[in-house]
Write a protein that binds this DNA or RNA. Structure first.
Lengths: 256, 256
DNA sequence: TTGTATTTGTTCGTATGTATC
DNA sequence: GGATACATACGAACAAATACA
């Protein structure tokens, strides 16, 4: 009996080291740039075998807390907080549990509309300069075809997300954009360069820029939704389009 | 010289196994519930030592991809996506001050408002039954104090997210909720049981339920924002509250 | 710059407790 | 209950890489 995994589950030896280090990093006892004791010293400190110590090191490393390299007598290095492991995890999540294109688009609409809103509130003047540059880039990329234009387009969204000053939104939006691009890469390759759509997209982005410049958070948020809808809606089956349309029309001046 | 870590950095033996498994999960070759080969078989497959295999297992385990337990002759189990690893990373990032409480609340508002909107569109009748039950539970938990009420409250949001039928939203919203609860655990413990707030919260949830029942996506989305704002806004410093307020007021009937 | 000591990366053998059949 | 195969954990050994005198 008892086919289910036990609730408490036997605590494993390496976990003691992991949570010990995590706690000390969280409490500030271990600062960025500090060194952990060497593996052999951890063996005596925790009364475990060296393999166990190494398992703990790999987990801490995978979570972005430390880095160790061979031959360094000073021990593993405590790293500064980085969104990199988070980005990897989110990328993995979007790739695995992305049931459909429409769900990915919904997710992107969700994240980027908030990023736009935040950017309108938190943007610096330097952000505006960078944004204007990416819009210019879209213009020059236009005659180079769909692929180049798409790259410039993604750049714009990336810069906006960065201007939001929200690390989590920034990282996760980037992951979702990438997943979407990979998913529709084949679908879109044969789509003839749609000059009219490109022009409309640039216009949209110009409007977003204006809204962010004028610190109009509501307008910026709504524009993210409507422009994503216009750009991508034709790729999703008509019978799944209602959820996307509902999000896109939220906050619209002419709705309600 | 060369104190900095090399750019290419020598690939380590266990990483081959990690990325191999990751790739197979991503490609769908390994489905949830499938089993990995035993450790000894992986040793021969990858021509590495057993400790190396175990290090790879710990990393995969820490990222929530697999679970293994001693004595199981079937090998490590491939897990379904879970919010746990994501929540842990987010919690760690916020604690190390890469991100603040207000950013977490913004993130939650972003995700849950979309989840509400989707739930209004995709909900089944069974979802409604479950939602009603969690609201009833909040009523019975009310006299048991803040902690019990908070748990029931979180349950409601969890059920709504599930009803959205959007795995990504569901998982990431759960992770963010978890992080927020951990972050404000101490702040809120001394907050006297606010009977009035509890009553208002239940009312809010009833309104959300009605909106989802009536398939009013816009109303459901707006309610998620306004109720989160009312519930949590007092915890964020006044000078950071504008971004949260901007999101909360978006789509409001009386704004614009 | 060279050499040396020490560290991490990796392998291997062994013992032990446990889940499955 | 017993046999089997598994994961957990330890520790010794060697190679490669690094820091430091």
């Amino acid at each position: 009996m008892s086919q289910l995994p036990r609730s408490p589950a036997k605590p494993r030896a390496f976990e003691a080291i992991v949570s010990h280090v995590e706690t000390r990093v969280l409490s500030g006892e271990l600062k960025v740039g500090d060194r952990l004791p060497g593996e052999r010293e951890l063996v005596t400190q925790f009364q475990v075998g060296r393999s166990t110590v190494r398992e703990a090191m790999r987990v801490l490393e995978s979570n972005g807390l430390i880095a160790s390299r061979p031959g360094d007598p000073r021990g593993a290095l405590v790293l500064s907080p980085s969104p990199a492991p988070l980005g990897k995890l989110i990328t993995h999540l979007t790739h695995t549990s992305a049931s459909s294109l429409v769900d990915l688009l919904i997710y992107r609409m969700t994240l980027e509309s908030s990023a736009n809103s935040l950017a309108a509130i938190r943007r610096s003047d330097a952000d505006l300069v960078q944004l204007e540059r990416t819009i210019t880039l879209m213009g020059t990329a236009r005659p180079q075809g769909q692929a180049a234009f798409s790259r410039a387009d993604l750049d714009f969204h990336e810069v906006v997300a960065k201007a939001s000053g929200h690390t989590l939104l920034h990282i996760s939006a980037a992951a979702v954009r990438q997943s979407i691009e990979q998913l529709i890469a084949r679908t879109i390759e044969e789509s003839s360069d749609d000059e009219a759509l490109m022009a409309r997209t640039i216009e949209h982005h110009q409007k977003v820029f204006n809204a962010i410049r004028d610190r109009d958070a509501h307008l910026a948020e709504h524009l993210a939704r409507s422009s994503l809808f216009e750009y991508y809606a034709h790729l999703v089956p008509a019978d799944q389009r209602d959820a996307l349309a509902a999000l896109a029309s939220f906050g619209s001046p002419d709705s309600v």
